[in-house]
Amino acid sequence: MMNEIHRPILVFGATGRQGGSVVKALLKTHWPVRAFVQDLSEPASVALQEAGAELVQGTLEDANVIASAMKDVHGVFSVMPASLSAEDEVRYGTCIADLAAKNHVDHFIYSSGASAGDKLTGVPRFDAKPRIEAHIRELPLTATIVRPMIFMEMLVRPGFGLDEGRLVSLIHRDHSIHLTAVQDIGKIVAAMFADKARFAGMTLKIASDRVTGHELEAAFSEAAGRPITYARFPDEVLAANADLAHMASSLEDGPLAERVDLDLMREINPELVSLRSWLKGEGFEKLEEALLWRPA
């Protein structure tokens, strides 16, 4: 397959984390990339073009531009911006899938969310992704759905205590959490585009590592070069933040508590990154920023 001359992959969110990771991984495997971007002059867009991607300018409102961008592509990678309302996320996510079906795209990969699960909660922002998933499954479209587990980047956000030697997150110290390095998402998606027959029709949770609260404390202390103590968010913080509360609950007995087969992940992506290696590599700069953060 990889020796054939490839038709392009159209990548949405190409200047964002997931889409950018997919573009990078596809270009590394010499697959032509058509990157959908809002602003051609944005530094991230310029960098994509310099890396070898073909740019298409448009917004998610531009159905005609999107349809035109899908012409003669092999595949489409669809991911929705986190900034969208639930209503817009469903509208744009289903529209892109509809256009892919209408344009007979060979392989459609949608990045959903691991906390989505298969059951609707009745809360629009939690139900947007499963609603898009359900819509995709009804279409005459060869599709793969990936559900990345919680991003490692979430642990190194400035202002959450690392500057004071504290790491606060969603699990109890003796519980475990699956984490995903964004760079792995691109490599896994690229491998899926390279093997449509294997991944067609599949919905797959993806992750890079699984660690306990104790292991988080040890990994961050080692990477920071000083003691970092781990604690779960206090109950009152969770009670005041519906998104955090939903994720914490899901990590205990919901979709985020389900095991990801990390051996399968390594088979799909032999370069899978552990949390420890991510903190020393791709995540080190972000860790440094969080350690040095000072309140305004």
Rank of each mutant, 00 (worst) to 15 (best):
M1I: 11
M2W: 06
N3C: 10
F12C: 01
Q18K: 02
V22Q: 00
V23G: 02
K28I: 08
H30P: 09
W31F: 08
V33H: 08
A47M: 03
L55P: 05
V56H: 01
N64P: 07
N64I: 09
V65A: 14
F77S: 05
L84C: 03
E87R: 10
G93V: 05
A97Y: 03
V105H: 00
S111K: 14
S112E: 02
A114N: 05
A114Y: 04
G117F: 05
D118Q: 14
D127V: 15
K129R: 15
A134I: 05
I136D: 04
R137S: 08
T144M: 06
T144G: 04
M152T: 05
M152C: 04
D174G: 14
H175F: 10
H178G: 06
Q183Y: 12
I188W: 03
F193P: 01
R198F: 03
L204E: 10
I206D: 00
I206K: 07
I206Q: 03
A207D: 00
T212S: 12
L216H: 07
A218S: 09
A219T: 10
S221I: 13
A224Q: 09
A231H: 11
P234D: 12
A239F: 08
L251S: 04
E252C: 14
P255I: 01
E258R: 09
L262H: 05
L264G: 11
R266S: 11
S277H: 12
W278E: 06
G281L: 03
G283N: 07
F284G: 15
E288H: 15
W293A: 14
